[in-house]
Write a protein that binds this DNA or RNA. Structure first.
Lengths: 204, 204
DNA sequence: TGAAAAATCATGGAAAAAGGGGAGAGAACC
DNA sequence: GGTTCTCTCCCCTTTTTCCATGATTTTTCA
C-alpha cells in the first residue's frame, strides 16, 4: 500500500528535508506541499492525500485551526502534527482537533517513517518525548469564559481594574470578580504569576 | 572558491533539507553537521569550516552562547544564524556575539545561497524580514543588573517584595527600589506589563 | 585613583490588588 | 424544571504595589 502524503509547513527547509528523506521510500507518494493554510485547503479540493504533515505555526492561520477545519471537511484524511515545540498546550489542542499524531522537528528519519506508517493505519502516534510531556503536565487545560479571556488580555496589556471597567462598560467590582476567578483557575496568588502562566500556556 | 560549510541544528529535518538543497552546488563543500553545541566544538578542534550555519535553540547551550565561544576561539569562522524566530532580541544578541548574518528557516533556496555567498566574503547578511524586524523594533535591548535579574525572576515566580527581601537577605524597600528600576527600564507601569514584556523578550 | 554604576536603605502617601463573603438575573444543560 | 454556569454587582479589610524623593555605601572599571 502506497501512502499519499502532503505537507503544510511555512519552513521551506523543513519541506525540503522531509522530501529528501522520503524520496527513496517506495511506500510513500509525495503529493506536494503548501506553505500556508489557504493553499492547503485549495489543494484538498482537488486531491485526496492519505496523510497531511501539518506544522503548527503557519502564516495565515494556526495549524491547530487548520487541523480542525480539514478534519471537518475531509474526515478520512489523517493529520500528523509537526512542530518545533514540545509543548503540552499545542499537543493537546492538536489532538483534540482530530490529529492522529504529533512529531517534533528534531525527529530522526526512522521516527518520521514510523509515525507515518502508524498513522496511515489509522492509529495514534506520539513520539516518546511528546508522550512524556503530556504525562508530566497534569492535563490541566484551563478553560476560561469569554469575559475572563477578555479581562485576562486587558490585564496583560497593563490595564488596571478601573481602566478595564471603563473599557468594557462594567463595574470595576465585576472586573475584580473576573480577576479573582482568573487567579483561582490558574491557581496563583498574584498578577505576576497569572501573566507568566498565561503567556507560557500561549493564552495571551 | 569553494566554501566549506558546517551546520549545527538539533532539527534533523532542517539539516537534511539544507543538505539536499546544497548538494548540487559545486561551490559549497558540505563538511558535516552537529546536533548540539558540544559536538560542534569538538568538530572545530579538528576541522576548519568557512561558514557555520547555527541554530539558536540547541539542547545543551543556546546558539547565542555558542556563537560567542566559537568566535572567541576561531575568529576567522563566519557564523550565519539560523532560526525559526524572527525576534529582535535573538537577532541582536546573535549579531552582538559576532555572527555575520541571520536567516529564517522559511528562507528559500535562493535566499540561503545568497546569504552563504555574502557571508563567505566577510560581509553581513540579513534577510529582508529580519532587517525589518530590527528596524521596527527601536533597538532597545534592555540591560539589567545582576540584582535586577534576580528580582525579576522572583517576581515572575509570584513572590511579593517581602518574600523576595527575606530570600535575598535585604530590606523590602531595597527590593522595591529594584522593582521600580525594572518598571522604568521596561517602560511599563505595573507588574502585569513587566512580566508580559520580560517573557516575550525571553528574559525569564 | 577617581568617576560612574549598582546596591543598599528610608519615609510617607496614593492607588491597586488580594482575600473573604454574599447575591441576583439570565442562559445553558440535562 | 431544577441545577449549574456565567456575568453582573456589592461590602469590608488587609496586603501589596506604585510614586516621589533622597541618601549612603560598595563595586566596577577605565
Amino acid at each position: 500500500m502506497v501512502v499519499k502524503l502532503f505537507i503544510v509547513d511555512d519552513h521551506y527547509l523543513v519541506i525540503e528535508g522531509i522530501r529528501s528523506l522520503l524520496q527513496v521510500e517506495n511506500s510513500i507518494q509525495w503529493l506536494g506541499h503548501a506553505t500556508n493554510a489557504a493553499s492547503c485547503l485549495s489543494f484538498l479540493k482537488e486531491h485526496q492525500p492519505d496523510i497531511i504533515l501539518m506544522d503548527i505555526s503557519l502564516p495565515d492561520k494556526s495549524g491547530i485551526d487548520l487541523c480542525k477545519e480539514v478534519k471537518e471537511k475531509y474526515p478520512s484524511v489523517f493529520i500528523l502534527g509537526l512542530s518545533t515545540f514540545n509543548q503540552q498546550s499545542f499537543i493537546e489542542k492538536m489532538m483534540f482537533n482530530g490529529a492522529s499524531g504529533y512529531v517534533l522537528k528534531n525527529a530522526t528519519r526512522e521516527e518520521l517513517l514510523e509515525a507515518i506508517a502508524v498513522v496511515a493505519k489509522g492509529k495514534i502516534y506520539l513520539s516518546i518525548e511528546v508522550a512524556q510531556t503530556i504525562r508530566n503536565a497534569p492535563g490541566k487545560t484551563i478553560i476560561l469564559t469569554r469575559r475572563e479571556k477578555e479581562v485576562l488580555h486587558l490585564i496583560a496589556d497593563g490595564m488596571t481594574n478601573n481602566m478595564i471597567a471603563e473599557k468594557l462598560f462594567i463595574s470595576s467590582t465585576t472586573v475584580d470578580s473576573h480577576r479573582k476567578n482568573l487567579l483561582a483557575k490558574f491557581e496563583v496568588k498574584n498578577t505576576a504569576s497569572l501573566i507568566r502562566n498565561a503567556v507560557e500556556k500561549q493564552m495571551i
